[in-house]
């Protein structure tokens, strides 16, 4: 009877084996294949398009597959001014995205209305209706800023715990990924908001 070798036969580092946790592997996969929803709202969208082209090359971060359908998208980049007329459609598209889903508010308008904040038809920030993960200030932000925001989102995803109270909504049966779609009223959008807009 041969004697058992107390040393392991495979040395992990030498044989190309790595040890990790399911959580890290899962998050590593998620953060490196964020597929954005293909839509743009204003001039920020031009910078977003520039970020997807060869010079800035968002493909380096696995986020170049802009999906024309919300059913296939993981990330909504709200790139530009959200008018009150457009806001219900943006919320509806976000509701149609499957979990896990994330939102980047790109530019001053998407964050708070920007220079058009006091206008008659501009929403004072998309975070009134859907939860925003990353805010990228700028008017418009440069493509580098969008990439920085994407990297910050990747760090956020990598740090997410898959269990416990802070787990992402898709692993929490009690959480809902649906948000109320605002309705057109006689002067303004009506319907519940996630927050009250700050007073000027």
């Amino acid at each position: 009877m041969p004697q058992l070798n107390p040393q392991p036969q495979i040395k992990p580092a030498h044989e190309g084996v790595i040890l990790t946790t399911v959580e890290d592997l899962y998050n590593w996969g998620r953060k490196n294949s964020l597929w954005p929803l293909q839509f743009g709202l204003a001039c920020c969208a031009i910078e977003m398009i520039a970020a997807s082209m060869a010079r800035f090359d968002i493909a380096r971060f696995g986020a170049e597959v802009f999906r024309p359908s919300p059913r296939q998208a993981d990330l909504m980049i709200v790139s530009g001014t959200v008018t009150k007329k457009m806001a219900p459609q943006v919320v509806r598209l976000f509701n149609q995205m499957p979990e896990p889903k994330y939102v980047i508010a790109m530019g001053a308008c998407a964050i708070c209305g920007g220079p058009f904040r006091d206008g008659y038809n501009v929403l004072r920030g998309i975070d009134l209706y859907i939860p925003v993960d990353i805010y990228i200030p700028g008017c418009p932000p440069r493509p580098e800023a969008l990439l920085e925001g994407l990297m910050k989102l990747q760090q956020k995803i990598a740090a997410q715990r898959l269990t416990g109270p802070d787990r992402p909504p898709h692993l929490n049966p009690g959480a809902s990924g649906e948000f109320p779609v605002p309705q057109y009223g006689p002067h303004d959008l009506v319907g519940p908001q996630l927050a009250k807009p700050a007073k000027n």
């Binding site: 009150k84 007329k85 008659y120 038809n121 057109y184 009223g185 006689p186 002067h187 303004d188």
Partner: peptide, 20 residues
């Protein structure tokens, strides 16, 4: 054209006061 169909008022008039 730019506002929704059941919108009331004419926003580019000088005496128009936008909502909130």
């Amino acid at each position: 054209l730019l506002m929704w169909d059941n919108f009331e008022g004419y926003p580019m008039r000088k005496d128009y006061v936008p909502a909130s």
